[in-house]
Design a protein around this nucleic acid. Sequence first.
DNA 1: TCAAATGCCTGATCTAGATCAACGTGGCTT
DNA 2: AAGCCACGTTGATCTAGATCAGGCATTTGA
Lengths: 238, 238
Amino acid sequence: MRLDIHNSDIPVLCQACEARHRGICGALDPKQLQQLGRQTGRQEVEAGTELVAAGVPTDGYANILSGIVKLSKLMADGRQQIVGLQFAPDFVGRPFATSSDVSAEAASTVRICTFPRSALEEMVRQSPGLEHRLHEQALRELDDAREWMMTLGQRSAAEKVATFLLLLSRHVDPLVEGYSDHLEIPLKRSDIADFLGLTVETVSRHLTQLRKAGVLTIQNNRLVTINDFKLLEAAAGL
Amino acid sequence: MRLDIHNSDIPVLCQACEARHRGICGALDPKQLQQLGRQTGRQEVEAGTELVAAGVPTDGYANILSGIVKLSKLMADGRQQIVGLQFAPDFVGRPFATSSDVSAEAASTVRICTFPRSALEEMVRQSPGLEHRLHEQALRELDDAREWMMTLGQRSAAEKVATFLLLLSRHVDPLVEGYSDHLEIPLKRSDIADFLGLTVETVSRHLTQLRKAGVLTIQNNRLVTINDFKLLEAAAGL
DNA sequence: TCAAATGCCTGATCTAGATCAACGTGGCTT
DNA sequence: AAGCCACGTTGATCTAGATCAGGCATTTGA
């Protein structure tokens, strides 16, 4: 279910993006922002909502204002691989293609700023700087994907779990530059397993192992406090 | 060791790229091509040559004219993950950054067309279409990387080996659209292992298994003929 | 021409992680 | 409240793939 917050009269579009010089809006001038503003809508979607379905053509894009989006690929037999997590103020959607075999789903409650494909394409035509922004994000995502390939291909289960926690601690709170020691895991265990190429049981075992070693504390399954970054990094194999 | 083929008076730059409307040259007009041509050099490098070292700043980029380039990441303790293969007419290098933690190495004998960073940046400033090309390649590489994450995280060793062979058969011969049934593996077994997140022994065992099942024939360790695509695809889990 | 090195294969064993199974807990619904 | 269901943990067992150990070509190079 989607809640429209508002659909028009947005004075400045996506201030969140602008704030950190990412997202797409920083590349536009005030006139263009206003023009785009007329075509956008902000929405708040709850965890579990599918934003982009694999293989299904979409008519629009979105910027993440807050929350976490999970990108995943599905195999014919049902096996799933989570191929990326996106945080504010990332851009959601595959430019220059009407569909992709990656699906995007809100992992937490997510606020997004949506706009139609045509609006983006028009903006790109007007502002080369915008394409540059998108290009930069694509390159950043490519780096992330390759870093994750390293984790998937070479690290042990224990290292994977530790690496995952470090990844989260670097990203869950977009306001904090660097690592936060107090974080809420936005995924359930089975999603973590699909991200790491492991089973739920293995993830659970290694989490309790880290807990028993005093590296972290877990409240309510989702809330994690990292007590010892040095140890966690050592466990990640860094 | 590098062999300079020639360094100047290139009438049309990178015809190979142009031919398939990829690479970067298709986005430039004749005048720009000529201008860029003055700053480029074609080189033939032998297998094993490091083109871009991880973490080391580079002053230039290249287009692959022929051959295969292997992209890899190294962990502190020596573990290696191959994070991508590039074929003609791909672009080599990380735009807008002077270094990257990915290293590029010629997997076979590779012919490249090199040009300085400044030349590329100048061209990008002049032709927005050029950045679009680069952006498209980045998105394509991102799709490839995510596809490979699926393989690394979810597929069994047997499926990985089969998937790898299918990947090669789709790419080794840039002239063939689709799959070729006769191919030369551009990597040694240990590289395949690093690509697949397996050990050499496991790769070897699954290759002989496919051979014994009649799916393929192997000559001289490197030359492979695929006898039964249906079986190979089944083995890949498709 | 004869080591020595490299690349690849195969066999025997070991183990990390999968699988199977049971159980606890908290949140919903009725 | 009672029952159910989704989620998470833990234990016992099994197995795919790692590790260890040879062995055989082919290449390198002194």
